[in-house]
């Protein structure tokens, strides 16, 4: 799938101070009944949004493109519907102390940047956005930097994934450069 290239982004951030947010919470299975990739944003965190004081119901975070969350974000099911829902809702960056493996891979393919920062830094960002919903965070993928107020932190990202996000490259196109090797592997195995 061709995705939008990402260089840098400055936005308000939604503080979701919970760990182990699973993909069933991000998008419950009953909303996976579509054969398209689009239109899932309205169902994002569907059951949590029924709680009136859930952070996504707070209008002050409207238009935010960054989500800050607790550790092990995106655990559970491999459904790509979870990043689709986040992306459709407007989220381009998720900052957390850790992510589940499959979810993180899926994010790259959807064009969402997943940033891992120390637990202490994430708590700091969570409390800033909680106290002041207007406070902005800048995510710079070219320098691998997060900036907020006068502070800056660097983060690591798989270099290959970073390139793909920066260029918005299609994964299949990249692999098809090696089509001859795939064919060679297949004929070797067939013998």
């Amino acid at each position: 799938m061709v995705m939008e290239a990402f260089r840098a982004l400055t936005s308000k951030a939604i503080p979701l101070d919970r760990s182990d947010v699973d993909t069933d919470q991000i998008i419950p299975a009953q909303y996976m009944k579509r054969v398209e990739r689009t239109g899932y944003g309205q169902f994002l965190f569907d059951s949590l949004r029924r709680e009136p004081d859930f952070v996504l119901n707070d209008e002050r975070y409207e238009g935010a493109r960054i989500l800050v969350a607790g550790r092990n974000f995106g655990c559970g099911s491999s459904r790509e519907h979870a990043p689709w829902a986040l992306e459709d809702y407007g989220i381009r960056v998720i900052i957390a102390p850790s992510f589940a493996d499959i979810f993180r891979n899926n994010c790259v393919n959807v064009g969402i940047v997943t940033v891992v920062l120390d637990e202490a830094v994430v708590s700091e960002l969570l409390s800033r956005s909680t106290q002041n919903p207007e406070s902005e965070i800048t995510v710079d993928l070219e320098t691998c930097e997060i900036r907020a107020g006068d502070d800056r932190w660097t983060f690591d990202l798989d270099e290959f994934h970073r390139e793909r996000l920066l260029k918005g490259q299609d994964q299949i196109d990249l692999t098809l450069r090696y089509e001859d090797r795939i064919a060679a592997y297949e004929s070797r195995r067939a013998r």
């Binding site: 790509e80 891979n105 899926n106 393919n109 990249l174 692999t175 795939i182």
Partner: peptide, 21 residues
């Protein structure tokens, strides 16, 4: 044996391979 997302399903269908660390 491991789970993959839908973009990876597409990748496997098209190339019979996966990019993995």
């Amino acid at each position: 044996a491991f789970g993959i997302g839908t973009s990876e399903v597409e990748h496997v269908l098209a190339t019979q391979t996966l990019q993995q660390r």
